[in-house]
Design a protein around this nucleic acid. Structure first.
Length: 562
DNA sequence: GCACTGAGCGCG
DNA sequence: AAAGCGCGCTCAGTGC
């Protein structure tokens, strides 16, 4: 059963309708004031547990969560449309021509983020959205596209997992990562000195800047300006081509050490310093907005606060609340394993049998040098041509002709301007007309540029099939994990009358998930994390002679994970 | 003053 | 040790 959700002509109201799986209405449409929506959703969820069909989960679910209403499953039309429009599996279905124009994203702030607008105007800002007919038509078009696609079951899985992830993302956003402001401040004090007033540099940063200026004999140097810095370095006899840290490390000069130290601390100060704390941490939680499918490959992106770039430096500020632990799980060597599975490379699969795939590959042909095996394999996935990993490619290709051949073929397809597709059916966007035009070149210089552009696109498509399929594995893992966590019986309430204290997913990072878990449930949730990963592997690849092991650590402090 | 790009670096 | 994939964020610098 589906519950279609749409905006009523006047935006303060919503309209919804229950329909059968075949699309037959089961009751007349019902109009509900926006403020009454959570109550209505809760009672329908209780009675029928329908699949909620809406333009975007992100436009509806946050306000339900704020009202403490959760749903079991949904169909996120925007996310599914984005996949179907490009999917090679649905290329012959004519879907792209029928797809409805998506309504804009709601500009309502994510919960937990203070909004200037909200304090000025009492009601949430108006937005345009689809009416019920459009929602029904778009759902019908998507279902028809799946049914007449070349791989209906894979696309069905992909779209339902993607929709489940839309719910996971909104819930994580709502929960936030438990974040101890006091510990973060202590870290900043230790590394940078006391919080500076106004726009001043913190003490330790200021000291390093002075050291740098005297070492370079450049009293007015602004170390934040790459151009000024470059000139000063050259004057001091440091002949660097750029001011990147890894390049500067090659030079022996008294200015290098303070410069690298300045860089590191400056980054902490500007990106994750006191301003970041003020802006993103409220009531002991770091709330960030996740953008499901925000990356071409299907990976998630994030908006605000840089949730997916939290430096290791400050992870000590993420602390489980009293009576809780963080269960931090990450999939071991996810991308190489995905490659072995995609290419059905049984030799590589055998190398991964004893948990550490890189060690297994090293034992099979790199004289036991794990680092060498890792560099070689990642080079194959990224399309490295030079350096150590480039040199190791022929050896890797001899050992694993299937796996290397698989990514090579993806690269060649990209170079020819074709699209490539993940296991479940996410395809790259078509090559741009500009790229195509560039390939029809006449002069030698144009020819050279065209070949370079072709190789660049080849590296993209080569990586896409692996990164994108890995994202699908992670997406299925999250969906399975969420389903199992929801099925846990409610535990006792922390305090009488409050919500029951359940484990909650609070963070996700490509191949890593963090659950904030009551102590009493750590063992059962740890098992659920493992079970979910096995389920994800079966969903994607069926029965294969390769595991996708997950490393789980139970910690109070995120810095202690791994 | 605003929008944009590039450099640099954080994460996987 | 090296510089190949995907992102977001901040600051400097540029162009309007």
């Amino acid at each position: 059963m589906y519950a279609l959700v749409a905006l009523a002509p006047e935006n303060a109201a919503a309209v919804f309708q229950l329909v059968t799986a075949q699309g037959t209405p089961m009751a007349p449409p019902q109009t509900v004031a926006r403020k009454d929506l959570p109550g209505v959703v809760a009672s329908l969820e209780q009675a029928h547990s329908p699949r909620w069909v809406w333009d975007r989960a992100q436009n509806w679910y946050p306000e339900l969560l704020t009202a403490k209403v959760r749903v079991e499953r949904c169909h996120d039309l925007a996310l599914c449309q984005a996949i179907l429009v490009n999917s090679a599996y649905a290329a012959g279905t004519g879907y792209t021509q029928q797809a409805a124009v998506l309504p804009p994203e709601s500009d309502a702030p994510p919960p937990g983020v203070e909004s200037v607008q909200e304090s000025l105007f009492e009601q949430p800002s108006a937005r345009r959205g689809w009416d019920l007919e459009t929602v029904a038509a778009e759902l019908g078009a998507q279902k028809a596209a799946i049914a007449s696609s070349t791989h209906p079951s894979r696309l069905t899985l992909l779209l339902s997992a993607e929709s489940a992830c839309a719910l996971v993302a909104a819930e994580m956003q709502y929960e936030g990562i438990p974040w101890r402001e006091d510990l973060h401040r202590r870290l900043l004090n230790e590394l940078l000195g006391p919080e500076p007033a106004g726009y001043n540099r913190p003490e330790k940063l200021d000291v390093l800047a002075s050291e740098l200026r005297s070492a370079l004999d450049a009293p007015a140097l602004n170390p934040d300006s790459p151009q000024e810095l470059m000139r000063a370095l050259h004057r001091a006899g440091i002949d660097a081509k750029s001011t990147r840290s890894w390049e500067l490390m090659e030079f022996k000069h008294p200015a290098i050490e303070p410069l690298l130290a300045y860089r590191k601390l400056s980054r902490l100060f500007t990106t994750n310093g006191w301003t970041w704390l003020e802006q993103w941490v409220h009531d002991g939680r770091f709330h960030s907005e996740y953008v499901v499918g925000g990356v071409v490959s299907g990976r998630w992106a994030s908006r605000g606060g840089g949730a997916m770039q939290i430096p290791k430096q400050i992870r000590g500020a993420a602390r489980a609340e009293p009576g809780h632990k963080f269960i931090v799980a990450d999939a071991a060597q996810l991308e190489p394993r995905v490659l072995a599975a995609l290419a059905q490379d049984s030799t590589m699969a055998a190398a991964g049998r004893d948990k550490d795939l890189y060690a297994g590959i090293a034992a099979q042909g790199f004289g036991g040098e794990r680092d060498m095996a890792k560099v070689a394999l990642l080079g194959a996935i990224y399309g490295s041509t030079s350096g150590e990993s480039g040199r190791l490619m022929p050896q890797l290709a001899r050992m694993y002709p299937h796996a290397v051949g698989f990514v090579e073929e993806a690269a060649r397809a990209g170079e020819r301007g074709e699209t490539v597709t993940t296991r479940l059916g996410r395809s790259t966007p078509p090559a741009s007309t500009q790229w195509r035009a560039g390939q029809q070149s006449s002069t030698a210089e144009e020819q050279r540029q065209a070949e370079s552009a072709a190789r660049t696109r080849g590296r993209f498509t080569r990586n896409f099939v692996v990164q994108g399929t890995a994202a699908e594995w992670a997406c299925c893992w999250l969906a399975e994990l969420r389903r199992r966590l929801r099925a846990l019986p409610p535990g006792p309430a922390a305090t009488p009358g409050s919500e029951s204290d359940r484990p909650a997913m609070v963070f996700f990072l490509h191949d890593e998930v963090m659950v904030h878990c009551p102590d009493a449930l750590v063992e059962v949730v740890t098992k659920i994390v493992h079970d979910s990963s096995q389920a994800a592997t079966r969903l994607l690849f069926g029965e294969i002679p390769l595991e996708f092991p997950v490393n789980v650590t139970v910690v109070e402090n995120y810095a202690d994970a791994k």
